[in-house]
């Protein structure tokens, strides 16, 4: 039995290393020179550590600008997203009014309409609003996140309704109640959803590709596919750029690993 367990661990580790390989290779290859790439035996370790590729990626292209674009879009889109979802969830959980459940359903049901199948019409809308090549245009279709709204509602529901009644008796306004009671009590779910939103926005590809034509408005995920090095087998700067993108998200991922595992296995965050 014990021997069997050792086998299992060995096989699991080998498979795990295969899964890890593309990430490992991206980091290693970011140090390769053109000669290292075309070596007859593919190298799995850089012969020398030179940051030449990083320098080239950051200076020969607009990579820094792409990163700033992605940061702005991800940061503000997540903020607005949370704002929209928090207001809606707040209203649905703490107030009683006619059509409440129906309207909530109308919003949640947009989950059934995958955004990637709506790109043509949404492109026309955004273009008519004059938002092509703007941050607002990139964010626009992602400002409503039905899944997050749903999770926020579940989170808010854990707050006793009596709090609201007590607060109302004390003359606390709705917005004040939201700001100083509901949000502090839901800090962890709001932060998790915000971070999740940020990563989702940061990783977008198709929509930002469509609504940006000017090079300096591209987001980083779109930008790195157009650096133009790959055609000449000179992958170095591309891998440097990819490594620059993977490193921080790997770091965040490893730091939050426990929370992510718990979240997914218990079924709170997915996607």
């Amino acid at each position: 039995m014990r021997k069997k367990n050792v086998y299992k661990t060995v096989v699991a580790t080998l498979l795990g290393l295969v899964v890890l390989f593309p990430i490992y290779y991206a980091f290693v290859a970011s140090f390769f020179s053109l000669r290292d790439f075309t070596s007859p035996i593919p190298l799995l370790f850089p012969p020398q550590f030179s940051f030449h590729n990083y320098v080239r990626a950051l200076t020969e292209s607009l990579l820094p600008r792409f990163m700033v674009n992605s940061f702005i879009v991800s940061f503000f889109a997540s903020l607005v997203r949370m704002g929209v979802a928090v207001l809606a969830a707040f209203s649905v959980v703490f107030f009683r009014f006619r059509g409440r459940n129906f309207l909530f359903f109308v919003i949640i049901a947009t989950m059934m309409l995958p955004g990637d199948a709506l790109i043509i019409e949404n492109y026309l809308t955004v273009s008519r609003m004059g938002l092509l090549d703007t941050y607002a245009g990139i964010m626009s279709v992602y400002l409503l996140a039905p899944v997050q709204l749903f999770m926020l509602r579940q989170g808010f529901k854990t707050i006793p309704l009596t709090y609201r009644e007590v607060a109302a008796v004390d003359g606390c306004s709705d917005i004040r109640f939201l700001w100083s009671v509901v949000l502090p009590l839901s800090k962890s779910i709001v932060m998790t959803l915000w971070l999740h939103s940020f990563v989702t926005m940061w990783n977008l590809y198709l929509w930002p590709l469509l609504v940006t034509n000017k090079t300096h408005m591209r987001t980083v995920q779109v930008g790195i596919t157009m650096l133009g090095y790959a055609e000449s087998l000179d992958y170095g700067p591309t891998f440097a750029a990819v490594s620059l993108l993977i490193a921080p998200s790997l770091l965040i991922f490893l730091l939050l690993r426990k929370g992510i595992v718990a979240g997914i296995t218990k079924g709170t965050i997915v996607g």
Binding site: L15, L20, P22, N203, Q221, V222, I246, F253
Partner: peptide, 13 residues
Amino acid sequence: TLFMLPMAVAMSS
């Protein structure tokens, strides 16, 4: 952790 790592990498990368 090894099996989970691909989650941290965006599609285009």
